[in-house]
Design a binder for these strands. Structure first.
Lengths: 171, 171
DNA sequence: GAAGATTGAGACTTCAATCTTC
DNA sequence: GAAGATTGAAGTCTCAATCTTC
C-alpha cells in the first residue's frame, strides 16, 4: 500500500534531493580557502556569538544539530589548531565548556565574509523576495517533522559578533 | 563590502541550513533496515530504470551527482554484495558498464516502499500542494546555480521499474 | 541509574596519482 | 593528450562502548 510519488511530487522531490546533495558541497567549496569546513565554521561562529564566547559542549552540539560524538571529535581538532579550548564546567562536573580563543575568533572573522557571500550567491541571488518568504515557511514546516524538537537555534550572519567586527567595526 | 544577511534572509537561511543538514540523515535512517545507504539505493534505483538495467559508470555518476571516484568505491562494495556487476563496454574500451543483477533488482524493489514512504512522511505530508509547487520552482532556481550543468536526471519513484513491480505487479 | 562527554573502530568520501584506451 | 575509470591514503562521521559526575 505504498504511496508512490505523483508526477508533481516527483519533480519537486528530485529537485529537493539535488539541492540537499549539492548545496552542502558548494558551501564547503566556498570555505575551502579559509581552511575551515562548514561544520567547523559553524562551531566557531556559534561560539563567537555566545556570551563570553563560551558554551557547553552539549549546548553547542544541539545548536549545530550534531551528535555529541561528532562535536567531540571536531572540538579536539579545533583545539589542536589553537582555535578552541575546553575546560571543565565549574557548575556541573559532568559538563565541559568550549571556549573560543582569540586566534579562533580571528579565524571566524576572517572566514565570515567568504561564507556569507557564498550564501548570497548560491541562495538569495537566485530567489525573489517572495520565494525567500515561501522558502522560509516551507523549511519551517519540514523541520517540524525532522528536527530533534525545535532545534532551530542558529542565528547566523546578521548582528553576530563576528559579523559586526568584520563588517562594521573591526575590533 | 560583504553583503551580510538581512533579518528575513537570516531566518530563511537558518531554516534551509537545518533542512539540508537534517533531511539527509532522516532519509538514511529510513533506509537503515534495508541495509542500503541512500546513495547505494540511488545507484541501484537508477540502474533499475535504465534500459537493460545497464549504464555506463560515467553516466551513473552524473545521474547521481557523484564523483567518478565515489561511484567506483560504491560500485565495488555493491559488487561484493552481489547486487551489481561491472563489464567492459564493447563500444568504448575506456568505459565500464554497470549492470544490476537480479539480486540487486530484488533489493531495490524491496527497499523502494520504505524509501518512498519516508519521502512522503518527511516532505510531502508537511507541505500543501501550493508549497510543493513553490518548492519545485525554488529548487530549480537554486540548481541553476549549483548544478554541474543541468544535472537533473533522476526520475525516481513514479513509473520506475522498481516501483511498478513493487507496487502494482510484483514480478 | 541518567546525563555529559570522550574514545576507538569501522565505514565512507575526497583528493591526488595512476592506468588504459581513445 | 584527453576521457573513462580505478586505487590508496587521509580525513571525517557514525556507532557502540566507556568513563565520570550528578
Amino acid at each position: 500500500m505504498t504511496r508512490w510519488l505523483t508526477e508533481e511530487q516527483q519533480v519537486a522531490w528530485r529537485g529537493l534531493a539535488a539541492v540537499i546533495h549539492l548545496l552542502p558541497n558548494a558551501l564547503e567549496a566556498a570555505l575551502r580557502d579559509t581552511g575551515l569546513s562548514y561544520y567547523e565554521y559553524l562551531v566557531l561562529a556559534m561560539l563567537s556569538e555566545a556570551p563570553g564566547r563560551t558554551l557547553r559542549m552539549s549546548e553547542l552540539a544541539g545548536m549545530t544539530n550534531a551528535s555529541a560524538s561528532r562535536l567531540s571529535h571536531v572540538a579536539r581538532r579545533l583545539e589542536e589548531r589553537g582555535w578552541l579550548r575546553r575546560e571543565p564546567c565549574p557548575e556541573d562536573g559532568r559538563a565541559t565548556l568550549a571556549l573560543l580563543t582569540d586566534a579562533g575568533h580571528d579565524r571566524v572573522v576572517q572566514a565570515a565574509p567568504a561564507h556569507v557571500e557564498s550564501v548570497q550567491e548560491l541562495v538569495f541571488d537566485a530567489l525573489t523576495a517572495d520565494q525567500v518568504a515561501e522558502l522560509e515557511e516551507i523549511c519551517a514546516s519540514l523541520l517540524a517533522r525532522i528536527a530533534p524538537e525545535g532545534a532551530l537555534p542558529q542565528r547566523l550572519h546578521r548582528g553576530t559578533t563576528a559579523s559586526r567586527r568584520a563588517g562594521d567595526a573591526p575590533a
